[in-house]
Design a protein around this nucleic acid. Sequence first.
DNA 1: GTCTATATGCTGATAGAC
DNA 2: GTCTATCAGCATATAGAC
Lengths: 214, 214
Amino acid sequence: MSTQPAKGKSKTEILEAAVPLFAEAGFKGVTMRAIARTVGLNAATIYHHFQDKQTLYIAAMAHAFARKAEILSAALLSDAPPADRLEQFVAALCQLVHDDPDFGKLIQREILAGDAVRLRLLAEQVFREFFTSLVALCKELAPGYNPHMLAVSIIGLVAYHYQVIPLRQHQPGSKPEHNDPRFVTGHVTHLLLQGIMVRQGGEQKSSSAWTASG
Amino acid sequence: MSTQPAKGKSKTEILEAAVPLFAEAGFKGVTMRAIARTVGLNAATIYHHFQDKQTLYIAAMAHAFARKAEILSAALLSDAPPADRLEQFVAALCQLVHDDPDFGKLIQREILAGDAVRLRLLAEQVFREFFTSLVALCKELAPGYNPHMLAVSIIGLVAYHYQVIPLRQHQPGSKPEHNDPRFVTGHVTHLLLQGIMVRQGGEQKSSSAWTASG
DNA sequence: GTCTATATGCTGATAGAC
DNA sequence: GTCTATCAGCATATAGAC
């Protein structure tokens, strides 16, 4: 909270060094010495800024997840028609996980770690608001579906594509373009809105769902 | 390979003790002592059966993934119509990840670990065959879609629902029934085949896609 | 095959000089 | 605020008795 003008390394610098390290190797895979080396400090100095490793880790999570919630919420709050809001949200989510791979990795690691307290905080303080907005959109867009399940499916379609890149890049038909946020947005939006059963003779490229933002 | 009739603990017993431990805590989160304690041995004895921890870990992965490939392939090889084969596959995948949570966790951990050699082995020796069959089904079922992307989407819709249970259980609208393989199968199959745009007045419960297996 | 004992290294964390 | 020096604990892995 207090500004530190050119007066030693700040807590923020330590956090910004720690986030990618924790994303890549997890809590036990990162040593205090490694974080200190990255930020250009001695390991003991970290303990002047943070009580212990656990405290530093939680602060790093909070720093990594800050502002993500409002980015996701914002895409859901336009006054466009429901189908367009869906596409805007899918596009925003694709862009987010594409531009910040650490974000997805840290969430996966938190899920695997399975700490009940931290998971509850993550669910309530980071995802609750935007998830509720997404559920509302699902109710409006597809009243026949279970809105909770549909919301999870929408997020999952995007998140999974980026999550399994290290595996699916070895599978037949994989191309680098498939990681382009616009390409994933087009695929996911069309699949959600139209489903698999394309009418024979139907030209899907002419569907408005394939265009990026209009 | 050699049978050991009632002659000390077998390698298989060690592997079957190690798999759930590695799934729960990851490579660095599991000590040789913990594995030994679980199987009822001294830590040093493990080194009589396995060269080192890394070798034991890879053997445990191979043991955990054995036979999974053919379970998934089998569901794709019936002579039913494409849409029914899709539902059979979705049902089989739901059942698999529901009955064996370790399976999904270990795959996630391997993806996060990011070892290029191990990921290539996993992709080629465990998933290649069934993924190729799924891509073929996608081409047959939905020629208008990119088959690679569609195959990933199908797997992702199922895998993601089970993967994020620890997070989505804290979100509004979550119910325990949503983890039932039959429920997830119904939701995913209907979403894939029909998409979101349900016709007004259409009664989705009457769709054959909602019924479990006929 | 299984054990005890132990070597060796790395880790989180602290004490205290500057 | 940052450093050096250091401790105590635990990890992997080995040596060798039984």
